[in-house]
């Protein structure tokens, strides 16, 4: 090692040069805008694909999409969904979910239920602020889920689009599932996608 190098090394050691080097970086950051933001006042922009709280959706004509097939229940890895299906008294011979529960405390937000749903009745929304003092209110029932779905309808549709579950809004009509079992009269015209 040359004398110059040695001297430099000794000098560095004596003056805590590496500390100053690091301090330079630190001080440079004083000129940057802070990376953090003040959460309740400022909100993150949440991407469309975000897997937030689940909501149930309706078709544009207001009908419930869910037919109570219970596939979400079996797809759920944490067994947090419970569907009670029944015959719809208003529309005989139609199956629907008379009760629908998601225990959101158990939910792992994997999105499998949405993936499983054969009618795209479930969608995940960007809603994530539902902390509460009462744990019991975290058992989302059918009404609450439809409320969420209604309030976050756009988010839900965007989610479905982002995850390849549904084409974008204009085309979503094409994605509608038809119920052959609802046939009451044999004269009913066949749906568009089948003709």
């Amino acid at each position: 090692m040359s004398v110059a190098a040695l001297t430099k090394k000794i000098l560095h050691a004596a003056l805590f040069y590496e500390i100053w080097d690091a301090m330079k970086v630190t001080f440079r950051h004083m000129l940057h805008r802070p990376m953090t933001f003040q959460y309740p006042r400022e909100q993150r922009t949440i991407p469309d694909a975000h897997r937030g709280a689940l909501g149930l959706l309706r078709y544009d004509d207001g009908r419930e999409r869910c037919v109570g097939c219970d596939l979400c229940e079996v797809a759920c890895p944490s067994h947090c969904i419970k569907v009670i299906s029944a015959e719809d008294t208003a529309r005989p011979l139609q199956r629907y979910a008379s009760e629908f529960y998601i225990d959101i405390t158990k939910c792992v937000f994997c999105g499998y239920c949405v993936e499983a749903c054969p009618v795209n009745a479930l969608a995940m929304t960007k809603m994530y602020e539902y902390s509460t003092h009462d744990k019991r209110s975290l058992l989302f029932d059918k009404k609450r889920l439809y409320d969420i779905g209604e309030r976050h309808l756009d988010d839900g549709k965007k989610y479905l689009y982002a995850h390849n579950q549904e084409k974008n809004v204009e085309q979503s009509r094409e994605y509608r599932y038809y119920f052959p079992q609802s046939v009451q009269k044999s004269t009913q015209p066949s749906p568009k996608h089948l003709s």
């Binding site: 469309d48 694909a49 792992v108 937000f109 994997c110 995850h163």
Partner: peptide, 14 residues
Amino acid sequence: DWFDELCGARLTTS
């Protein structure tokens, strides 16, 4: 955040 945009979750990605 890139993960969030990719799959919808930051940590539990699946």
